[in-house]
Each structure stands twice: as C-alpha cells, then as structure tokens.
Amino acid sequence: MNSNSYSPGLHKLVTLQVDSIEKLTDSKEYIAVTNQILDKYGLEQVGIIVHDFDNDSFTIAVCLKESHICIHTWPEFNQLTLDVYLCNYLQDNSAKVKAVTQAYMDYFDAVIIKDFEINR
C-alpha cells in the first residue's frame, strides 16, 4: 500500500438489544466468549480491564495487538454497546472486524439498534 491508499482500519460501533439479562450481567462468560473469538480470528490480547458494577452490569476493554474491543452493558435497558476496531497494519482487517462483531451479536442473540462503521 502506498501512503495515499492506506486506510488505518475499520471501526465498528453497535448498540444492541438483548433479551437475556444473564448475558448482560455475566462478565466472566463474556471474557470466555471473547477468548474463543480471539482464538478463532487469530487476534492477540495484550491487556484487559474489567469493571463489574453494583447492578451486575459490566464494562470491559480488551486491548489487542491489532487495537481493541470494548463493551458496556445496561441490563436495566436490555442493551449493550460494543466497539470493535482492528488496524490494517499488515493486511486489511475490515472483514474480520465485521465477523468479530457478528460473533458477538450471535452470542448475545442481539438485535441491532444502532450500527456505525467508520473507515479510519
């Protein structure tokens, strides 16, 4: 890629409706699913921050060698926000961003409320 055609990566931001309160309050299961997704798509975790709130909602930021995945859950509204960004340093990871996002949507059996894609 030359500097004029280089795109740093795709950033996908979704707000999802989720019927299962249990999935919106179980941060340990979310981490287990995330590890499976990372393995499946060959992504490398370099750090993770987990915060469980008093109402059992959670926020988790997974730092990746390729960039990050972040989630915030709101069980009181049956919603979550998910942020997936992968850099295109050695290859175009746009399809992988979409597949990772879909894998989370499948896990949560979610319906899209908002869906944004930012080509950075």
Rank of each mutant, 00 (worst) to 15 (best):
M1Y: 00
M1E: 04
N2V: 03
N2T: 03
S3M: 12
S5D: 12
H11C: 14
L16S: 01
L16Q: 07
I21E: 12
E22S: 15
K23R: 13
K23F: 03
L24V: 02
K28E: 13
Y30I: 05
I31A: 00
I31N: 03
I31P: 02
A32R: 14
V33R: 07
T34F: 06
T34D: 02
Q36T: 15
Q36R: 15
I37M: 09
D39G: 03
D39S: 15
K40G: 06
K40Y: 07
Y41G: 13
Y41P: 13
G42R: 14
G42S: 14
L43E: 12
E44N: 15
E44Q: 15
E44W: 08
Q45P: 06
Q45M: 12
Q45C: 12
V46K: 12
I49A: 07
I49E: 12
I49F: 05
I49V: 13
H51S: 07
H51I: 07
H51L: 04
D52A: 08
F53K: 10
D54M: 01
D54T: 00
N55V: 05
D56N: 15
F58C: 14
I60F: 02
A61T: 06
A61L: 00
V62R: 05
C63I: 08
C63P: 00
L64V: 10
L64D: 08
E66N: 08
E66F: 09
E66M: 04
S67T: 02
H68Q: 10
I69W: 03
I69F: 05
C70Y: 03
C70G: 09
C70F: 03
I71V: 15
H72T: 01
H72D: 04
H72C: 02
W74T: 06
P75V: 04
P75N: 09
F77A: 10
F77W: 02
N78V: 00
Q79C: 09
Q79S: 08
L80A: 08
L80S: 01
L80V: 06
T81L: 05
Y85S: 09
L86N: 01
L86G: 01
L86Q: 01
L86E: 04
C87L: 08
N88P: 05
L90H: 11
Q91A: 15
Q91H: 12
D92Q: 02
N93R: 12
K96M: 11
K96C: 15
V97S: 07
K98V: 11
K98Y: 01
K98M: 13
A99T: 10
A99P: 13
A99K: 15
Q102W: 01
A103F: 13
Y104M: 03
Y104I: 02
M105I: 06
D106M: 02
D106C: 05
D106F: 00
Y107R: 06
D109M: 06
D109P: 00
I113F: 04
I113V: 14
K114Y: 01
D115G: 01
D115R: 02
E117Q: 11
E117N: 13
N119F: 11
N119K: 14
R120E: 02
R120F: 14
